[in-house]
Design a protein around this nucleic acid. Structure first.
Lengths: 362, 362
DNA sequence: GTAAGCTTTGCATCCGGATGCAAGCGCTGT
DNA sequence: ACAGCGCTTGCATCCGGATGCAAAGCTTAC
């Protein structure tokens, strides 16, 4: 044991420390520290000399030590649970890039069925992350969220918890669902259905309520309101079969794009319905596959960039002012009309502006 | 500034430290430390007393401090670049769970066009990660990889770099490509094509070379070898159109499933070819969409779980023995035959065993 | 009863940087 | 020339746990 450890230690030639570098240059360790701290009290000449030597000797300040003394980890913990939905990898990638812009690294905490949530949250606290970003319409209880976020900057993305004073950022689901309903109405559809995702999630509830309400306002009939049970292709497929059996729906709104893709295939390939002539289909999110020619799915685009920017912005604000009150931010999205509701002809007329249906898709 | 900082500090009620807890219990800080260190010299009674108090007072050892003194971060840095391909989110999720099992947290480093690679790698080193796992068929130069992995446990997943002595784990691409060629041959196809992904990646090169070689061995004709240029639906779609124009191919192997999906749609919906009657299609990876009824894509399944296990295993070995020589591990996958090569009838006969085509897909 | 041998505990110090404070230095103005 | 002021620099200490070493406590054996 001790032997092995020694071997390891000797082989991993330990990196240069600030003290060592300082000694070599005949300056103090503080000087080295200051050279790497923007805005600290040091002459440009000394700083240059130190930085130059550091570059030559391949010295990099030890982030761990720095964290310890600054009591600041420069790490944002991202709690994720649904990497299966392609919307999330995209979001996370952009988010992690956004965080990097403000010098925050992303420590990922995957919470999935199968992983120990408790343990993950303990780790989250132990790592002293400066900020917690929770991206998961599911899983965490309110109490867990409170515990995980207590006393640190935190943002819930794409999720709200009513009784919890934690800042949240999401797409305006109400706007989106209404836009879909309005679109169906403008197309002259009267017998609409809704396919839910995970029933109890805030995203689903908001979309469902807003859609159902708007449908009633517009005098359309809600034929089915199907509980998909999850945000998956399979659930959408099954729901599509149900709807086809009902034979009465002329427009369906699926709670997200993956559901819609499944529904699309079931409705066209099994039920042999024509889209959009027999039935119009709309999804939500605007993931890559909505642009695939096979689907060309009308959807409500989540303002991903805006969501990321707002999230990063709120984190930064909270970091500089711990008293910042929590807020719920619903960001405006955009209805993207494609073939699945208007067919190929009208699309050109309406002026769908993508130069090619292929541009920009996965 | 100082004012604000003070406010922050006061509001974030700082967590209990080991010294504080020790003082409350009338024991030494070392005792607390030992209570939390398995196998250390402490009586069970004392340990219990400390752990009990710790639980009550909500004390958790500060991981940062622990890292500093142990010179061990318990963090694995995962360098990723292609979150767009659904194969990777799945892999990463499983990998991060596998790492958690051995007490390693995953710090993600997203390397994308647009992000500063250099900076990311510096961060990787600064955080003193114990292990580096590079999952990205692309982007990093050999020199960068060497620099990032130097002196620490490291594994390249799904990628090899010939002249570099860094351990790698990947699917056996040669086996997979040969299996596809053999399958085409067994189906009686004679005029095959290959659609490449990112040309210079090891995954692509291995698949391409093995396929081309095997095709020649079997006496089949290689009609086209198309440079997709990237692993995307669009590239596959364009390649599909090219192949259809050539009119001579009766079986295509796409370098991965996403390419295959694009090719499938182009061949069936634009070129109006029947799959598999006119043309058989195979992909690689076995991502969720291959199971979607619309595609039902024959593919070579990457042994994701085995890849994850092997990777974690190799990391652990390297951590306990720094002298472990590097190795290249190609893990055996599995040919998954679906409708896109054998059609609906034979599938039942061949005995595709999924209880329902929907099971297990996204 | 006491010395040897082992275990448990505490003390002191270290990990590598950050930072408050005071000493050092250079410049200005009289 | 010297007091006064401001900027640089270094010293000492801290961040929160880990750990080698020695002291203390307990067993066992003579």
């Amino acid at each position: 044991m001790t032997k092995a450890e020694d071997d390891v230690a000797s082989l991993r030639h330990k990196p240069l420390t600030a003290r060592e570098l300082a000694r070599l240059l005949g300056v103090s360790q503080s000087a080295v520290s200051r050279a790497f701290t923007p805005g600290s009290s040091i002459t440009p000449e000394l700083r240059q000399r130190i930085l130059k030597a550091a570059a030559e000797l391949n010295y990099h300040p030890n982030a761990i030590a720095s964290m310890l003394s600054k009591r600041r980890s420069n790490i944002a913990g991202i709690v994720v649970s649904e990497m299966q939905n392609p919307f999330y990898p995209t979001l996370i990638e952009k988010l992690s890039r956004g965080l990097q812009r403000v010098r925050l690294q992303s420590l990922m905490f995957n919470i999935t069925r199968g992983s120990n949530v408790e343990e993950q949250l303990v780790a989250l606290r132990q790592y002293n992350v400066d900020a917690v970003i929770i991206i998961s319409a599911t899983v965490l209880s309110g109490a867990s969220v409170r515990w995980a976020t207590e006393g640190r900057a935190a943002v819930l993305v794409n999720r709200t918890i009513p009784d919890l004073s934690v800042t949240s950022v999401s797409c305006d689901n109400v706007e989106g669902a209404r836009a879909i309903a309005d679109h169906f109405h403008a197309l002259g559809r009267h017998r609409v259905s809704y396919v839910a995702g995970l029933a109890h999630t805030s995203t689903n509830l908001e979309r469902q309520n807003a859609f159902v309400t708007r449908v009633a306002e517009l005098g359309m009939r809600l034929v089915h309101c199907i509980a998909g049970g999850e945000y998956s292709y399979d659930a959408g497929y099954r729901a599509g079969l149900d709807i086809a059996r009902g034979k009465d729906t002329d427009a369906v709104f699926f709670a997200n794009d993956i559901l819609a893709a499944g529904g699309f295939d079931a409705l066209t390939e099994i039920a042999k319905l024509r889209v959009p002539e027999d039935i119009a289909i709309a999804g939500f999110d605007d993931v890559a596959l909505t642009r695939w020619p096979h689907y060309s799915l009308t959807t409500f685009r989540q303002p991903v960039d805006a969501i990321v920017d707002k999230t990063v912005d709120l984190i930064m604000q909270q970091l500089s002012d711990a008293t910042l009150p929590s807020s719920h931010n619903a960001l405006s999205g955009e209805l993207i009309i494609r073939h699945s509701t208007v067919g190929k002809q009208p699309l050109e007329i309406i002026g769908e502006n993508k130069p090619s249906p292929l541009t920009n898709s996965l």
